[in-house]
């Protein structure tokens, strides 16, 4: 039954192919190939300003993708991350612009709102046993509607909150190393990604995230309160969406209530390209980051080459299918 691995010829290449790192390696290689390809095709591509633009574009999608990675590893899916991000931005707008509260309070309110909404999704999934796809689809629409209701369908600007736009657009790193004007948004993405990677790898919450996706019933029978942990994971993902909400609001210096739909699919695409299994139990934050970068490089590169927006979407779709197919082929070979 499990003798398949033993019979494989033992050479370096096949061992490399057999390791779980392969998909990540493949994704990373694709990323490098894309970078090289685009810089040959256009001299404008490999410029610092363009690289920074790519990183900036990655930041929001990257944070959302990290959030959705958590949920996907449990074997679930979260379709509400895009509109939740917007909802959190609107909440920040209400607290800062409408109520005139201090900056920190607005940020905390956005994150708390995100965590609360995540907890709601988690409750629907864990306690009410609604399939994650349906529960978060409902949540996606509820939040889209609520964002419009609360804001009166108009954007909320943050002109009265000095410093708000610097959250995403300023550059702490640039102040220390002027040659590297990496925007704060990117810095925040990396901090979020590192923290979540640590949680996944080193904490009980992370252990249960993988365990739930691997065999939920077995975890329950081991005496673990699976429902509570699952709700916790959805809440954590929600809180991270709150951070994404702050990032996008800061970048646009406004909360745009109509924005948000479609972000969830981009985030899921990044996760999948990064090699996280949609059936749960397996996945890495590094993979997700690479996936998000691939998406951003692709969009940016095609734009630099003046490919029409319509075609960019087509290419992105094709890339997703290719990435998942490559993963399937690998798994079949690994037997």
């Amino acid at each position: 039954m499990n003798t398949a691995q033993e019979t494989k010829p033992v050479n370096l290449l096949s061992r490399l192919i057999d390791t779980g790192a392969h998909q990540k390696l493949l994704a990373f290689a694709s990323l490098v190939a894309l970078l090289i390809g685009f810089s040959i095709a256009s001299p404008n591509f490999m410029q610092t300003s363009n690289m920074i633009a790519i990183l900036q574009a990655t930041s929001v999608n990257g944070v959302l993708a990290v959030a959705v990675t958590l949920v996907i590893i449990t074997g679930g899916i979260d379709l509400s991350v895009g509109t939740l991000m917007t909802f959190c931005a609107v909440i920040a707008g209400v607290v800062l612009t409408y109520a005139g509260m201090p900056l920190l309070l607005g940020v905390l309110a956005a994150i708390a709102a995100g965590a609360f909404c995540g907890l709601c999704s988690g409750t629907f999934v864990a306690k009410m046993k609604i399939p994650p796809f349906i529960a978060t689809l409902g949540m996606m629409l509820i939040l889209k509607g609520l964002s419009l209701v609360i804001s009166g369908t108009r954007p909320i600007y943050f002109n009265d909150t000095p410093g708000f736009d610097l959250i995403s657009r300023g550059s702490l790193i640039g102040e220390i190393f002027p040659a590297l004007p990496v925007p704060n948004g990117v810095l925040i993405l990396f901090i979020v990604a590192l923290s979540v990677a640590y949680i996944l790898g080193r904490t009980v919450l992370g252990r249960y995230t993988f365990a739930l996706g691997s065999n939920e019933e077995a975890v329950r029978l081991s005496g673990v309160n699976t429902d509570a942990w699952k709700m916790g994971i959805y809440a954590l993902a929600g809180g991270i969406c709150g951070i994404a909400g702050i990032l996008i609001a800061s970048r646009l210096n406004s909360a745009q209530p109509a924005l948000g739909l479609g972000y969830e699919l981009e985030a899921i695409a990044a996760v999948v390209i990064g090699g996280t299994s949609l059936s749960g139990g397996r996945g890495t934050i590094l993979g997700t980051l690479i996936g998000a970068l691939i998406m951003a490089v692709l969009t940016n590169g095609l734009r630099v080459l003046s490919v029409a927006q319509e075609w960019q979407t087509v290419v992105t779709g094709a890339i997703i299918i290719l990435a998942v197919y490559a993963d399937m082929v690998r798994r079949k070979q690994a037997g």
């Binding site: 252990r207 996706g213 077995a218």
Partner: peptide
């Protein structure tokens, strides 16, 4: 068998009591 295939042997044994 009620094991979590994606976890290691030790992680499986002590699930819930890490």
């Amino acid at each position: 068998l009620s094991l979590m295939n994606d976890l290691t042997v030790a992680q499986n044994i002590f699930i819930g009591r890490e």
